[in-house]
Computed example of a mutant assay.
Amino acid sequence: MTMAAAIESRNAGASAWSKSSRIAAVDIFADIDQAETVWRSLENQHHLSTPYQRFDFLRPWQQKVGTREGLTPLVVVAYDLDRVPLLLLPLVLKQGWGVRSAHFMGGKHATFNMAIWNRDFAAVASRADLDVVFAAIHQRESIDLLAFQQQPLTWQDLPNPFALLPHQTSANDCPVMAMMPGASETTRISHSMRQRLKTKERKLKAPPGYRYLLADSDADVKRLLDAFFRIKPLRMAEQKLPNVFAEPGVEDFIRDACITPRVDGGRVIEIHALENDSEVIALFAGVADGYRFSMMFNTYTVSAVSRYSPGLILIRHIIDHYAEHGYRTLDLGIGSDSYKKLFCKADEPIFDCFVPLGPRGSAAAIAMSAANRSKRLVKRNPALLLLAQKLRRAFG
Score class of each variant (00 low, 15 high):
308 Y>V: 01
256 D>K: 01
177 M>K: 08
71 L>A: 01
70 G>A: 02
367 A>Y: 09
276 N>Q: 02
142 S>C: 06
306 S>L: 03
394 A>H: 06
330 L>P: 04
359 P>M: 09
167 H>P: 13
295 M>N: 10
174 C>Q: 01
298 N>P: 00
284 F>R: 07
266 G>L: 11
8 E>S: 12
272 H>K: 00
359 P>R: 08
31 D>M: 08
166 P>R: 03
284 F>I: 15
8 E>W: 09
309 S>D: 10
250 V>H: 12
227 A>Y: 07
189 I>S: 13
307 R>D: 08
5 A>H: 01
303 S>E: 11
219 A>R: 03
307 R>V: 15
307 R>F: 01
245 F>H: 10
334 I>T: 12
194 R>M: 13
6 A>E: 10
183 A>W: 02
302 V>C: 11
131 D>A: 07
248 P>Y: 05
6 A>K: 03
114 M>T: 15
78 A>R: 03
28 I>E: 06
281 I>P: 03
55 F>A: 00
242 P>M: 06
31 D>C: 07
233 P>W: 12
220 D>V: 04
141 E>Y: 11
390 K>Y: 07
292 R>G: 04
377 L>I: 03
233 P>T: 03
78 A>G: 03
299 T>N: 13
80 D>W: 06
34 Q>F: 02
18 S>C: 13
31 D>F: 08
225 L>I: 09
285 A>I: 02
77 V>E: 09
313 I>F: 04
281 I>H: 02
119 R>D: 15
274 L>G: 01
55 F>W: 15
19 K>Q: 07
188 R>F: 15
337 D>S: 14
9 S>T: 14
65 V>E: 04
387 L>R: 14
136 A>S: 13
171 A>N: 14
66 G>M: 09
227 A>C: 03
